[in-house]
Structures are given as structure tokens and as C-alpha cells.
Amino acid sequence: MTGMERLAALMKGRTPDRVPLIVNLLDQGATELGVSLREYYARGDLVAEGQLRLREKYGYDGLLGMFYAGLDAEIMGCHTILYADDGPPNVGHLVIRTPEDILKLQLPDDLHCHPRFHELATCIGILKQESAGRWPVLGVMTASFSLPAMLMGIGAWLDLFLTGDPGLRNLLLEKCSQFCSRQIVALREAGADLVIYANPVASATFIMPQKFRDLALPWVIKDLEGPGATGVVFFNGGGRINPILADLKKNTGIGAYYLNPFDDIAEARQILGHEALIVGAINDIKLINWTPAEIDQEVARIMRVGKQQGGFAFGTQVMPLQIPEENIRALVEAAIKHGRYATDAL
């Protein structure tokens, strides 16, 4: 089976040959091509080439059409991205520094006309073409409720949505939500089969479930109102999401949830019922130092819980560049070994 066939089987409520495996390697693509991160992310065709090589090398089930999180801020006006040699590029300029900046904030009407989105769309287009329907292409975006953290800094965003002017907050969220809706459409147009919708600030690590209901959930609903929730995967973004799953399930139409390593998979299944697709994630920072035996043990544990009720994929967070190659191989080998379903289940 291909990755796409495995995913399609899950979507139809069938059991694939094994648990689909999503490994989020990003900066590692530059290493594969022997170029700097700055050169790599300047061109969508290079990122596509890096992604294709990484998938071929390790043998996991998806292709990641993403550069770095700060790209969303770039499209919204951030003019400085800071590159490191050994980690993801960072936002180096805050678009919003004063309330007036919120009033002045402009969205691109057509994302495809923005040079940076154009490169991303080029990357996704190549991945889609080269995949030839074998591997799902994943587009990634930041939800409207989390995007302001990259535009104004997380402290200022917390200040605004917890204690600031509600009118200003809503104006900013309205603009961010318009951007998100357009981005979902544009990612699909570019060729993304799934859209990973990252919403860390809405997670239970940042805000209480009641605040989520009052402040964040309406904007999740709004982001998806136009483009629809088909193929959208709610991604934890680094925060726990089990406490908000029931509200998301009830109100958004999202059918797939990418848990945090600290979310309990069995609990998530109980909350979501049998229909939702759950991605259980490994704590990939541990992969930097774990031995292959330790990796095998942890993968086996996650698979044991995840496979019990089906509708399950195995995933990573965003794998740090510091994870040794042999540990990435050990992860994939363990996931394939422990992710197999019994043949008579097929």
C-alpha cells in the first residue's frame, strides 16, 4: 500500500496494512541537498527536492509542503527572517508594534501573487506532481487565533486578548481569519491533500477550556466557514489539545486531530468517538539522545494504544535538526514494525 492508500483506508473506516507514518522533517532537506537553510528556503523547487529525497530515504508516508512557521508572518508583512545554521528560521521583525499597526494591517488579496507564497505553492505543486497520488501532500498553516503571536509577539498578544481592547482584538482576529480562510483555499489550489491547521495559542497549554470556548473557538469556526473543514487536520502546535477536543468535534466539522505527545491517546479516542482520525505524536526531542532500543520501546507503546480502536496515524512534532540519522531510521523501522495490523484484519 502507498501512503495515500493507507490514509484513504482510514478515511473510509477500513484498516490499512499498517499505521500511516507522518515524519515532519523540514530543515533536514537542506542537509540532503548540501545547501544552507537560507538558500534552501529561498526556492520552492529546492524544498520540494529536499522533501522528496527525505521521504525516499526514510520511507514514511507523507510529503510536507511547508517551509517554516514564520512564512505566514512574512506573507502578512514581516520583512526580516533570521536564519540559523542549526535550526528553523525565526521571525525577526514584528509587524504589529502599536494599535495603529493593527488598523493598517493589509492582507494580500491573492496569496499566489506574494513571492514567498508563490515559492511555497511551487514546492507543493512539485510534490503533488512527483507524488503521483502515492503520498499525501501536507500543507501547513497557522490558525487565526495563533497568528498574532508571530505578528506582535506572544506577550503582547496575551495582553491584548486577555486584558486589552476587545474591539482591537476582534479587528486583528478578523483580518487574521480572512487570511487563514484564503490560505486554506490557496494551499488546496497549490495541491495540498491535507491542510495542517496549527493552533498552539488555542491549546489547553495556553488557555483554559472556557477561554477557548469564549475566545478561540469562534475563530476556528470562522476560519473554516468559507473553505470548509474537509481535509483539515487540527494540529496541537506544541500544546495539549485533549481538553478542547469535545468542543472542536461538536462545533467545527474537523475530522482529524494531531495530538501532543503529552495528550493521552485513549482519552482522545473516548472523546472523539470512532469516526475521527487521530494522529498520536512521539516526543521527538527525546530522539536526539535515545538509543534505538529506547525509540523502539516508545514507538511500541504509542502504537499499542493507538491501534486498539483504529482510525490512527503515527506522527512526530517538528523533528529538530539535531536528531541523528540513525535515530530517524530507528523511528521509522519501529513504526513500520509495531504499526502493522494483523493480515486477517485487512
Binding site: 486584558t163 489547553a204 497549554t205 495556553f206 488557555i207 477561554k211 481538553p243
Partner: peptide, 11 residues
């Protein structure tokens, strides 16, 4: 007993 959040820490 429930999770205390970063926004509560921050404030």
C-alpha cells in the same frame, strides 16, 4: 487538579 495554563502563569 486541571491543567494551569501559560496565560494564567503569564498574568
Amino acid at each position: 487538579d486541571s491543567l494551569v495554563t501559560l496565560s494564567q502563569h503569564f498574568l
